[in-house]
Design a protein around this nucleic acid. Structure first.
Length: 117
DNA sequence: ATATTGACTTGGC
DNA sequence: TGCCAAGCCAATA
């Protein structure tokens, strides 16, 4: 049993709350996980994800709205296909802004509504 | 223990 | 639009 760091688990948790048909950027996920500026950690976390994991890793794209894999790679194809299945169409290689999940929505789901004093 | 990598982001040109 | 440099820091070598 590999022991994954709590941060990685948190990231997985955040990614799991991204609704079907929506997407979020690595930086967005990092922020929602309470780790602003650590987009790369999100990438590292997804990379560690088990192959059979239920975590919707494919809903995470980069800040440009594009898939963070070489367009020719099998990984790119897989992620693209999964997005298509959920109705997320890439226009000229990028996801429409409308597909982006709203941060407060997930914030409330994750941290509870309006906890801020 | 030190060095390099990387599924990133942002700002500047 | 695109390329580059700097910032970020856990994971890997």
């Amino acid at each position: 049993m590999t022991q994954v760091s709590p941060q990685v688990r948190k990231i997985w948790q955040v990614v799991s709350t991204i609704p079907r048909g929506k997407v979020a950027s690595y930086g967005q996920v990092a922020r929602m996980a309470g780790m602003p500026g650590r987009a790369r950690l999100v990438g590292a976390a997804l990379k560690q994800l088990p192959d059979n994991s239920p975590v919707p890793w494919h809903r995470v794209i980069n800040a440009s709205g594009k898939i963070s894999f070489p367009p020719t790679s099998p990984e790119w194809e897989r992620q693209h296909q999964r997005l298509l299945d959920e109705g997320v169409i890439l226009v000229r290689g990028k996801a429409p802004g409308a597909a982006l999940v709203e941060e407060d929505f997930l914030d409330n789901l994750l941290w509870g509504p309006d906890e801020g004093v």
